[in-house]
Computed example of a mutant assay.
Amino acid sequence: MGSWKNQVRARLLLRDQREKHPYEGVFTSLSQLEERSEIRQQFLEEVQSNSSEGGVNVRLLQLQLRESERLAEKLSQTVSDLTTVLYLKDAELQHWQSRVSRHRQEALTLAKGGNALKATLSQQEFTIECQNKELAALHVEQKGLKEALSQAWRDKEELLQRWMEEKKQEAARLNKYNDAQERWQRLARHLRKHLCREVKKDGEPIASSP
């Protein structure tokens, strides 16, 4: 904030130097006129002192007096002009001081706003950091869940494979049992038929099979 103050101060000094430069000759002339007026006043006093003694030309004295009056009028006008310029400069200076004060107030307001934004940014950065940590923890948890899910799928596949193997073995045993039953039934039918033939040969009645 100090940089813009220095910049404004430097511009004001440069402007004052630029605007005061045309009046440097006026101030020099004013100083010369004041000096000449003092000399004329002293000369007038000497003339008046000599006139009381009766040794001075009255016409010359009147000419010098009129010249002194003209110089006094010029001096008065110059002083009036310089006073007006000073009033204008003073008003302009007050205007610039008012603008500087307003800009200073705006700078203070902007600085407060900047500090508030910095605080908000710091809070947001802290929130983002916390969220990043939470996200990292969730990634770790997600990785663990994926590994657990993969293991569960592998266990499921292994369990399904074992179940299918058991079902195959059970089906094989059932088929083997059915084959054995079928063989026993065929053998039983064959034996009944053979028994029936033997009974017919012997003439005995045949008991009905269950």
Rank of each mutant, 00 (worst) to 15 (best):
K146M: 14
L33H: 00
Q48G: 10
S98C: 04
V140S: 10
T127F: 12
H139M: 15
A111R: 13
G144N: 10
F43E: 06
I39N: 12
Q97W: 05
R102C: 05
K89L: 04
G25T: 09
Q32W: 10
A119R: 13
N132E: 09
I128W: 09
K74T: 09
G25W: 13
L86C: 11
S29C: 02
L149H: 09
N57H: 06
L117R: 10
A111I: 11
R59D: 15
A116F: 09
S80G: 12
L65C: 01
E35Y: 14
E73A: 12
Q142N: 15
G114H: 11
D90L: 15
S49Q: 13
Q105A: 09
G113L: 12
Q105Y: 02
V56H: 03
K133V: 09
Q123A: 10
L44M: 08
R104A: 14
Q42V: 14
Q64Y: 14
N57I: 09
K74F: 03
N57R: 06
G54A: 04
L149P: 05
R36N: 11
G55N: 15
V56F: 09
A116P: 00
A107F: 06
L110I: 03
L44G: 01
A111W: 14
V140E: 07
E69G: 11
I39G: 06
L30D: 06
E46M: 14
K118W: 09
Y87R: 07
F27V: 10
G54D: 01
T83M: 04
A116I: 07
H103V: 02
L44T: 05
W96R: 01
L44N: 05
S98I: 02
F27D: 12
L61S: 07
L110Y: 04
E141P: 00
L71P: 00
W96N: 01
S29L: 03
N57C: 06
E67I: 07
E125K: 11
T78V: 08
S49C: 14
L30M: 07
Y87G: 11
A148D: 08
A72F: 10
N50W: 13
K89T: 01
L82H: 00
V58D: 03
G144Y: 03
A148F: 08
E125L: 14
L117Q: 14
V85S: 01
H95G: 03
T84R: 06
T28P: 02
E67Q: 13
E134R: 07
A119H: 13
G55T: 11
W96V: 07
S98G: 08
